[in-house]
Design a protein around this nucleic acid. Sequence first.
RNA 1: GAAGGCGUAGCUCAGUCGGUAGAGCAACGGACUUUUAAUCCGUAGGUCCUGGGUUCGAGCCCCAGCGCCUUCACCA
Length: 528
Amino acid sequence: MNSENNMETTGSNSEDEAAILAVRRSKLQKIEALGHDPFGQRFDDRSYIADIRARLPEVCLMTKSGERVSMPQEFGSEGFDMRAWLTSQDAQEFQGPKVRAAGRIILHRDTGKLHFIDIRDWTGRIQLFVGREQVGPENWELVQCLDLGDLIGVDGTLRPTKTGELSIFAEKIHILCKALDPPPDKHKGLADPELRQRLRYVDMAYNEGVLERFLDRTKIVQSIRQTLAKSGFVEIEGPTLHSIAGGAAARPFTTHHNALDLDLFMRIALELHLKRLMVGGMERVFELGRVFRNEGISQRHNPEFTMLEVYQAYGDYRSMMDLTEKIVEDALQAIGAGNVVMWGDAQIDLKTPFARRSYSELIAEHTGVDPNDWNAVKNYAESIGIEVAGRHPDVVINEIFEEKVERQLHGPVFVIDYPASICPLTKRKADNPKVAERFELYINGMELANAYTELNDPDLQKKLFETQLDGLSEEDSMAKMDHDFVRALRNGMPPAGGLGIGIDRLVMLLTGSQSIRDVILFPLLRPE
RNA sequence: GAAGGCGUAGCUCAGUCGGUAGAGCAACGGACUUUUAAUCCGUAGGUCCUGGGUUCGAGCCCCAGCGCCUUCACCA
């Protein structure tokens, strides 16, 4: 990979590359010599290509007897034979609306005195028919200076070619921006995953479906905000710089404030500040924003990712299950997907309501061991190589869950009622203090959402912050002492349901993306 | 952090047994007024990731490093 400097200066390591760039620059000069600004100007009143295509009903064929024949239903479909249809019609000429479009040149077929140029905007692609006689010498000169990748505008008439492709028959071409770097392979695009991430703009501009996937991400996020707004939740912006990185078990990034000479942490969760706001009276509140965890990178992990956390006063974790289903339902609708999404070769049915299964029931089902029988659990754990000595029973049980149950949960399934000791921020069941009112939503073995009935007992919260779980270092524990948070609880926080959803993973699921890097615009990479 | 795989033209990829580097696309020149990844003829284009080593000779073998991918660990 060349450094950027090399690519731009005479230090270029390839004559080929230098030649390609030189050719494009010479065309740029020629465009200037023809009296055009090669980087273009404001271009008013153009229509989106999808909207132009939608004007097909305005296109018609004039017959020699002066009759107007509209395009047949089958026009544009696979088996439609345009030439046969034309000969059957006593055709004179086509008429169609005048249109103006703009976009990037993605394909170019030059047949001499005729160019076919495919342009693309963010709504679709369309073919331009550019004939030498039809556009005149000035436009023709300009067309000779165009390359794949250039941004152009066009004025022309919408009508089909003889071979049946709806096209814009160009009358005037406008150069809107000369591209100086050549595009990737016109058919395969960028294939190297590293290059696709580094040159995300190229990936989006040329690779099939990439731009659309990121637009889907935007639609999903918008839909979530709408769903929550409709249900009366307000969105807030909490601090991203924390002096105590709490609310989750994760290693934080550290940073430093110079004026205060203060070490700070990038937030790892949104939870504790949102709960403070519930103390303050925000009864339905959420934040949808970035959190940072200083941990490994994988197909499902990026150091910064987007998290939704929602809190509903006077609700509980069951309210959050209903809300989760609503969020998923609405998001599917927002991207025009049905209830069934593809995940690799597998189909996942996201029809609501999702199954609700208790944690201990699932353990018993998948292992044959009663989680309340410590001796049986111990024996089972040892038999599958999980260390038992000196560790809290619930930690051992949870390892069994992760090892034996989690992967089997193709879901969607709400796993409910977790062992209390691994849930330091969660209210216990009224009739059984060993069980916490928590659920996690699993789909395809992937944890998508996590929710609690929120613990609002300040004394118990303080105690749980002070209690170190066996086998967990302070760094790994979710229970990091936050005195101010305990003080907030002493002021009275309503009983509440709280929900967290990993937005990147939700987008992965809904768009069928196997890697988190396919749904994050600019994933973390080592510098070039 | 560990193991495995990969790194060759602007892009996508071949490269046999170790014997002086190949194709398609893109580019350049030419032909073509209805093409669909247009086609046809021709031309040009290389730090084979980097640095060492073995060898008469290394894209290929060995060692070290860098980067990416996959799996695992951590984690959501």
